[in-house]
Design a protein around this nucleic acid. Structure first.
Lengths: 316, 316
DNA sequence: GTGAAAGCGCTAACAC
DNA sequence: GTGTTAGCGCTTTCAC
């Protein structure tokens, strides 16, 4: 594998000069510049990125922490980051945690080992206190709002959107409203859903809250539980459109009509939701990811709120 | 940022000894080992990966080339690669091309620059002749079969699966069968679909072939074209379950019944297919991705065929 | 304009 | 068991 010295020798110049033409410095005579370029072509030379990264102390690589990589929501944020990465000549390393806090810490330490210039956290497993120390080594951007001054945030206004969603349901005459969540109370968005519910309807009956919902099947199961209650809900706010679709399907299999017998509101405007005409709260996760990436490369600690929008279809 | 010499000084040993404890070499006295470990803890030291990579000539990073990152099929292969990467202590770099051949070449040269230990190509943009030269710099694994001895392959037996699918349709009494594809004749899988069709039904009428199908909406549009023909097809083989769902929806909107009025066969066993009960040809893309990763880290040039399976649901 | 020399942070002979 | 020395491939003062 040819290196800079091989080129230098072949072109009859010093390594310094080769480096200069490589980096488009001025003050290189046309003659030598040409000689160097020829040598580079002939030996099919490419500079070693590790050496450059070592000296520069940066890699032009950004890590994106996601809990699962087959989850529509996190994929959307990753998608946004990838969009921007191409634009700016960065590469994106995917860092799946499966909500393993230790794994997450390992990933964060990649800032310290200089593998990564910055890290974007789409959903965290550790408490902030364990995460913030790593900001010493490089920017950490969160896709969830946090007060910590060291952490840049590109976040959706989850709480407001939840309140909005529940209000919408209430305005439509629903009083018996259930909802699904992904994780339990260790998750901020679950807590926010709870609180928003309380604000609008008061404390939710525990049978009206179904957690561990990620997929279509989970939605189906949630509906099974919910629709066998004596006090059936008349509306359900699902934590994703796939989950909402699962609910939809079970309800329809029971001969129920959507939205007459049961109103359904989903989240994230996923393809499956459009297929089933499910109204949804779109948190614009792709934009969240794009903005997060922008903050990452700007080493910015700003807190930027991405607006959500409610998309009305026929399930409500 | 502390480096190995700081640790050495603090522990009162040489850098070599520090390196030795870092890499768990034997022949270090317990005493010095302890001293080094203490120093490491006190200074919160982590070795610089760039320096290590530079010296070792490898990065424990594998790149995965995908055309689009929001496409279910490619995401599945990426998913497979990620699964294995964690197991083996590797990181995965996502390399989206949007089928831009120049971009792909740029990515391939990351082997040469020593950024990547290997590259997995889920779908290629260049001719093989342009790709194979890069195998000099590191393993390239393809998720499509190719004869080139330098390229390892983890592939699905697409052709056989297509023939099988068309046969299945024929056995079910269908003679007027249409199909959709993603790209045109620049894509091997499109060509294979054509050939398989010819083998079973003879040359396809050009109205029966709809390309540029990626999403639900594309399927919807395909159905619009197909179902206004005088000679309507009685069965459609879609290139994905989302596309099949789009077709499904348009057909149903016309008052048609699936499968009585129109049989539908999808591909890749995507969530949306299960939601709509769409029979599908599952090429087991996650396994393809996992196997590809395995080949990559083993620097193997084997050609491994992943079996497909047909999943019977209610659309046929 | 150009090159010599130092150094980024680490590992690996080799000698003792 | 341990340290000295020489690099890995590049960039960057600093002279000339």
């Amino acid at each position: 594998m040819a290196n800079i010295h091989d080129i230098a020798k072949k072109a009859g110049v010093s390594a310094t000069t080769v480096s200069r033409v490589l980096n488009n410095h001025k003050y290189v005579s046309d003659e030598k510049r040409r000689a160097v370029k020829n040598a580079i072509d002939e030996l099919n030379y490419t500079p070693n990125r590790n050496a450059i990264d070592l000296i520069r102390g940066e890699t032009k690589q950004i890590g994106v922490i996601i809990p699962y990589n087959n989850n529509q929501a996190f994929d959307q944020m990753l998608h946004g980051a990838l969009n921007k990465s191409i634009e700016h000549g960065y590469s994106v390393l995917v860092l799946p945690t499966r909500y393993d806090a230790k794994k997450e810490l390992e990933y964060l330490s990649m800032l310290q080992t200089k593998m990564l210039d910055a890290i974007i956290i789409t959903s965290r497993s550790n408490v902030w206190g364990a995460i913030t120390p790593f900001t010493t080594y490089g920017p950490i951007i969160s896709c969830e709002y946090t007060d910590h001054a060291e952490i840049g945030c590109s976040y959706m206004d989850r709480y407001a959107s939840y309140v909005d969603a529940f209000h919408l349901l209430k305005e439509n005459g629903h009083e018996k409203v259930a909802f699904t969540t992904a994780r339990g109370m260790e998750s901020k968005s679950t807590i926010q859903t709870f609180t928003a519910y309380e604000d609008v309807f008061g404390k939710p009956p525990s049978e009206y809250v179904i957690s561990s919902c990620y997929s279509l099947q989970d939605g189906y199961r949630a509906a099974q539980k919910l629709l066998q209650l004596k006090e059936k809900p008349t509306a359900i706010y699902a934590n994703g459109d796939e989950v909402a679709t699962g609910i939809y399907q079970y309800a329809v299999s029971l001969g129920m009509h959507i939205p007459n017998d049961l109103a359904l509101l989903g989240q994230e405007n996923q393809p499956m939701g459009v297929a089933f005409g499910i109204s949804t709260v779109d948190h614009q996760l792709i934009k969240v990811g794009e903005q997060a990436f922008q903050l990452a490369i700007e080493k910015s600690k700003q807190k930027i709120k991405i607006p959500y929008q409610i998309i009305h279809r026929s399930s409500i």
